[in-house]
Design a binder for these strands. Structure first.
Lengths: 215, 215
DNA sequence: GTCTATAATACGATAGAC
DNA sequence: GTCTATCGTATTATAGAC
């Protein structure tokens, strides 16, 4: 027998080094995954704790309650979405190019964070959008609407309802990923989430939308 | 005081008349609503029982388990969707008219059963589509794909990937309703679920898709 | 077929030692 | 800041009377 720490007595969890910021970030990451998979009510705090490696009590220490943690998660993804769209700097581009870039960015975002679309859906169904509302994602929506209005004014796009068109464009960008688990049975040989298929879908989506709204 | 049944002793639930079929149907209806709102794991059997008016034990008597009940619900909505699309008889119409009718039917279906879109979403996220797969909804999907292939062959539609196009059309038909609770904050004055707005959205969707795929 | 009562467990949240 | 231990309640599922 050796004289190391792990002894005959029942194995105790080794105490973590103290690092408030790192712990909070780990909790947020794990919570985002769990909430995306199970929603606010369906998520188990124990599952988040297990995924994080820290203990359940820490979650309450930092975020007060399950609801508080959920709000923090929605805040973060809303803010990040806003930043992603701001970086596109679409105001410098002609309307058609700006819209193409936005669609491409939207699909890329859906491919990079496939679980976040589900977070938004859960938010709509289970919480009537009350928490997402305050997270600032709306700016991304209106940036597309603005492009459409500009294109119409310049005569590049046909006359249409920019608000409804924005919704429908978002539908095209998100449905592919949100419904993927149902769609995968339709064409088992196609790898819907492979980069080739996503690139093809990106091109199809751009073609459909651009042809659909051009003057 | 009267001498009627409701007496001084603690009120017992009046025993229901025996009607197996009616009870099963009531349970299925209530379960569909609850599963659409909370998903398979999040739904409480007590909530279904309360909504149904029958007692919790009946649900286990008829459907064995929560999962069994869920399967029965998914079977039913898959079968009904299939029937709805079959009744369209789109094979008799020219491709363009057939597609218009399909889009209109899809949006009408979403408007008539706004909760069913959520059932499909939950199915994808929580159960990886395993139960929905066996419910026969795929026939509805392929009926749209077939219209697109026919239109391409006849020269009415441009060359495109009929499979991906079908997905994107479904995205347009469903996103409006699935995301409604998040979208409603964007334009508080517009009543997104009013029949006027839905008719407008139907027209926008048809215009977008038809212009997007015509030769 | 329908109901009551209850077993068995899972879960959110907190108290208090270290 | 991190951990252990536990309280109180909610929930799935079953046993058994009617």
């Amino acid at each position: 027998m050796d004289s190391s720490g792990s002894s005959q007595k029942k194995a105790k969890k080794p105490r973590q080094v103290r690092d408030a910021e790192a712990t909070q970030a780990k909790i947020l990451d794990a919570a985002e995954q769990e909430f995306a998979r199970h929603g606010l009510t369906g998520t188990r705090i124990d599952a988040i704790a297990a995924r994080t490696g820290v203990v359940k009590a820490m979650i309450y220490y930092y975020f007060d309650s399950k609801e508080g943690l959920y709000q923090a998660v929605m805040q973060r993804i809303g803010a990040e979405l806003d930043i992603a769209f701001q970086q596109l700097a679409v105001t410098d581009l002609p309307a058609e190019a700006a819209l193409k870039e936005s669609i491409r960015a939207g699909i890329n975002y859906g491919a990079a964070y496939p679980h976040r679309g589900m977070l938004w859906f859960y938010e709509a169904v289970q919480n009537q959008g009350q928490y997402g509302q305050m997270s600032g994602w709306q700016k991304s929506f209106w940036s597309i609407t603005t492009i459409l209005e500009r294109g119409i004014a310049e005569g590049a796009f046909r006359s249409l309802d920019p608000f409804l068109a924005t919704i429908n464009i978002l539908g095209v960008c998100t449905f592919y990923f949100n419904a993927h688990e149902n769609l995968k049975y339709l064409a088992p040989t196609r790898q819907l989430l492979s980069s080739e298929m996503i690139e093809r879908q990106t091109q199809e989506a751009i073609d459909l939308v651009l042809a659909g709204i051009k003057a």
